[in-house]
Design a protein around this nucleic acid. Structure first.
Lengths: 153, 153
DNA sequence: TGAACACTAGACCGGTCTGTCTGCTACAGT
DNA sequence: ACTGTAGCAGACAGACCGGTCTAGTGTTCA
């Protein structure tokens, strides 16, 4: 864990540890140790562990969105794009270290139905919903029902 | 939370709280408060929080197995049973308080790839795999590949 | 009556976690 | 050379959690 600003290193360390072992299980000390950063720096940059978690989830969403939007360019029609989303995600799921959706994992540790983690998860689901909705509209079908079911998976 | 033995009340309270808020988030005090049971009783019955978690997951698996095995009786052929599993599970997923698979949630909080929680989750997945394998064999198909993919969902 | 038993209430201990604070180091701009 | 800034190292406080222990209460059975 070297190179880049303190913020980048912290975010990278947080992503690895939080995803592998859970947000609650991993303490601040583990994160700063892996990032090679002082504790004071973490609190200068993020202010709290909660903010670090939010930043980790936001980054996760950003990466996923970019991956899907980029991968979707291969597919010409809206119908193929709809199936392509699952294909792209399937490739990620098949990778060795895969431990399930990071948002599901994080929100299963979240105490309250509101709160920052749930909010981020909702936003993530909302983006997927909108993506499907747009594609389904473009492909032509009775939209919302199918979307809800596909989102369940 | 009243009626039944201390063990039953603890298990019921643990199921609600652990599932709703996560194994790590919910402390012993919360569980015994909801169960209306003294802390010493919990440790007399289960010995540790870890054992309580294991009992919670074992109970969860028992209930799920019973629900599926019972629901599957409706379907005459093996092919219909295969699809029926998803139908039965879909009904549960659609219920209001649904927060995702309890085993995925619990194992996303689990620190190590071994350990009791992961073991229970593996057992759970193993049971599903065997169920699918038996049904697929009965229906006649090239079995193991399809099973692995269906288990991913 | 009284002894065994199951349970409750809650104080208490040790460890761990988040978050703060104080020094020290190193480098960049003037 | 001087000063501001960014970062490191680690001690420290306060809170929380898992787990133990003591003391008290009610019930059952002889």
């Amino acid at each position: 864990m070297e190179g880049g600003s303190a913020r980048e290193r912290l975010l990278a360390a947080a992503a690895e540890l939080f995803y592998a072992e859970g947000v609650h299980t991993v303490g601040i000390d583990r994160v700063i140790e892996r990032a090679g950063v002082a504790k004071a720096s973490l609190y200068n940059v993020f202010g709290s562990k909660d903010e670090l978690v939010k930043a980790y989830l936001a980054d996760r969403q950003r990466v996923t969105r970019a991956r899907i939007e980029h991968g979707l360019q291969r597919y010409p029609t809206a119908r193929e794009k709809l199936l392509g989303v699952f294909e792209i995600q399937g490739e990620v799921f098949a990778r060795p270290g895969f431990r399930g959706c990071a948002f599901i994992g994080a929100s299963s540790e979240s105490p309250r139905p509101d709160g920052p983690v749930e909010t981020a998860a909702d936003e993530y689901r909302g983006w997927f919903r909108d993506l499907f909705l747009g594609l389904a509209r473009e492909a032509g079908a009775r939209r919302p029902e199918e979307l809800a079911k596909q989102l369940c998976l």
